[in-house]
């Protein structure tokens, strides 16, 4: 479990804080999408999960370990894996398998165990046939999968990802999303920063941040139904959600907590049925239909 208590962070003591008293609890095995405009503090927040940053005020607890405790740093970094936006800048090995072995090597594991972890990690992301390849010959999506394999070899309980798919093509994006879902099903906590609506919709929970604070926190349907607030932040909502919202603005009685075409279809069909029914009762409205 990741627990954040009154977290304040300033890059410089005289600066305005990047995070202003954030409180948050992420349960084991949750799939959390963290969204918000650029500069809202998302990246700063997840860098606290793996002790890359230390709180100016407040505390961050990972499975009961305080990130301020220097003796816990090694353990925390093993528990929380971190993936960054640019896969090129997180690959350190000259071959795929050497790169995956970097983390276990840092843990000083014996070669036999490193080999086992490397093979398992490569299999988990579907890169088994690429073990001897040089990383710069891989596609963008494969490079990001390699970065994920490098983290998996550390056997973490939680993975925090900072816009891992923003530089990928649709195929690469899909393969990364599929691997993340699979890991989540196996019980891994996923904290995923993204601007991609499709990826947000699939999360268990969406957290919206703005100007260093958490603005909205809830299931995707709940969060996205606050269309006006999201629009005020300059953030997109799924097209079907916006459609339902516009219908509501026009005075129709429809739900706006709708994210999929199927649900929208049902809701609109129900609306049409109601209109037809009303029309058959009061013939005066027929002219409008």
């Amino acid at each position: 479990m990741i627990r954040v208590e009154n977290l304040v962070y300033k890059y410089d003591p005289n600066d305005t804080p990047v995070l202003r008293s954030v409180n948050l609890e992420i349960r084991d095995g949750e799939y959390v999408a963290l969204i918000g405009p650029n500069g809202c503090g998302k990246t700063t927040l997840i860098k606290h999960f793996n002790t890359l940053l230390s709180p100016t005020e407040g505390d961050v607890w990972i499975d009961g370990l305080n990130t301020k405790d220097p003796s816990a740093v090694g353990e925390i970094r093993q528990r929380v894996g971190m993936i960054f936006q640019n896969p090129d800048n997180q690959i350190v090995g000259m071959t795929v398998e050497e790169d995956v072995s970097f983390g276990p090597g840092n843990l000083n594991l014996p070669p036999r165990e490193i080999r086992q972890r490397v093979d398992e990690a490569l299999e988990a992301v579907g890169l088994t046939g690429y073990a001897g390849r040089s990383p710069h010959t891989l596609s963008g999506g494969q490079k990001q999968l390699l970065a994920i394999a490098g983290i998996l070899a550390m056997m973490p309980k939680h993975i925090a990802l900072d816009e891992p798919t923003s530089s990928l093509d649709p195929a690469g994006r899909r393969s990364v999303a599929a691997v993340l879902r699979k890991l989540n099903k196996q019980g891994m906590t996923i904290i995923h920063i993204t601007h991609n609506v499709e990826e947000i919709v699939r999360a268990d929970r969406v957290i919206v941040m703005d100007a260093g604070s958490i603005l909205l926190d809830g299931k995707p349907e709940q969060v996205f139904s606050k269309v006006e607030r999201l629009k005020a932040l300059g953030m997109g909502v799924p097209q079907v959600t916006e459609l339902m919202w516009r219908l509501q603005q026009m005075g129709e009685k429809v739900r706006t907590d709708i994210l999929t075409v199927d649900d929208a279809c049902d809701e609109i069909a129900a609306l049409l049925r109601r209109i037809r029914k009303a029309a058959s009762i009061s013939p005066g409205r027929q002219a409008r239909g």
Binding site: F84, G105, N106
Partner: peptide
Amino acid sequence: RRAEELAAAMEARGYRRGPRTYLKE
């Protein structure tokens, strides 16, 4: 800039100075 990102990624994977083990011993 690249070096800065790389350093963060290496730290996140538990890198610290000193002896380490290798895949192929």
